[in-house]
Design a protein around this nucleic acid. Sequence first.
DNA 1: GGAAACATACCAACCGGTCGGTATGGTGCA
DNA 2: TGCACCATACCGACCGGTTGGTATGTTTCC
Lengths: 218, 218
Amino acid sequence: MFPVVLPNRPFREPAANARGKLLEAAVRLVRTQGFAATSVDDLCREAGVTKGAFFHHFPSKEALGVAAADYWSQSTGAFFASAPYHLIEDPVDRVLAYIDLRMALIGGPVESFTCVAGTMVQEAFRTSAAIRIACETSIMTNAAALESDIAAAMAQAGVTGTTAASLARHIQAVIQGAFVLAKTQENQSCADLAREQLGHLRRYFTMLFNADEKEAPR
Amino acid sequence: MFPVVLPNRPFREPAANARGKLLEAAVRLVRTQGFAATSVDDLCREAGVTKGAFFHHFPSKEALGVAAADYWSQSTGAFFASAPYHLIEDPVDRVLAYIDLRMALIGGPVESFTCVAGTMVQEAFRTSAAIRIACETSIMTNAAALESDIAAAMAQAGVTGTTAASLARHIQAVIQGAFVLAKTQENQSCADLAREQLGHLRRYFTMLFNADEKEAPR
DNA sequence: GGAAACATACCAACCGGTCGGTATGGTGCA
DNA sequence: TGCACCATACCGACCGGTTGGTATGTTTCC
């Protein structure tokens, strides 16, 4: 149905300059260790650059965190914006296809499919307002991109009692929760547990959007 | 319906000895700063004990993390086990009442209602297997405590296509995801956003358990 | 040549953890 | 009763290494 999307395969081109290498290193290290446990030296080593390069491009470690969240937001946003599921005509199917796509992206080691923003905001929400806001923007922008499809699906199915924005946020919440639960597992089970959660999300949406069909012929 | 459960009010007695004080300090600091960003000195200052006391009771910071997860698991487990919602006869209502209770516990600053295990596992899943397992136990034990109620509700409503264990895990996933999203918000909105997610979870369960009534008279 | 893009060397503060020592209270025995 | 003995609880100075960050080159490219 879709071109195969390999999980764990980064969909970003290798960065040439130090700034890009540091952002890529930040994505990898934050995903595996978290932000606080990742030192500037770690980042430089992983990126293959020196500390001078780091502080040339970023005034502080916190600024790197903000930039990493923005970088993450932009690259994932572009990926989902260009995903072919948008071509599906029926809005309900389109929303479900988004969930299926998120499910297909889950695989391999847990740090290969988890979310940088979700990981970072857990640690930094109180210590760094800048990072918190950058993560908020990342997650909420991701949610907002789904609103129009969800609104169309709701209108078609006659769903009431909630809003498209709220449902879009819930998708993000379930995804983030799936990642947290996945991190409690040993290697092999991570992806299964995460996919299970998206399965329930899919079922919720299926029931919501089919409520019309089930209740109409009474 | 229930005796009022004040959110943000710890339901644990103040600890007398250094060990207990350190565990309480760990709960507070890990919730607000995360595990890695919390130093041993921070913990000692917050607990009002010295470093000597710390390493008398815990062989390492990692061991404190494990103990904190166990402590968290035990105290929350006891709280939910003794909650009066268990008295409700109808199993479907009982499951929904658990969700309502979780919803009622959300309020005040975000670090007063979030989960220690969920926060800690995000940072430590790769760096410390011991902490990862302690957090897994905490979350999965919490989930397992719901299984019998959910199984009874499923049997009564004739729900198929999933298992009680899977649904119990999903409750935990949505709660964890709600916490992550809440942390992206400024003070006032945190609780609202978290409650919104539990609202969707409640709707999912309501639809699941009423599926019987809707589909039977065809 | 001059600014941007890096590299090297270095710093003070802080990190987790160690260590010698003390205060206290229980136990066994004369 | 009283005292030697000892385990537990706790103290705070201290250690080597690491931290985020800086100051000062050197190279690269327009």
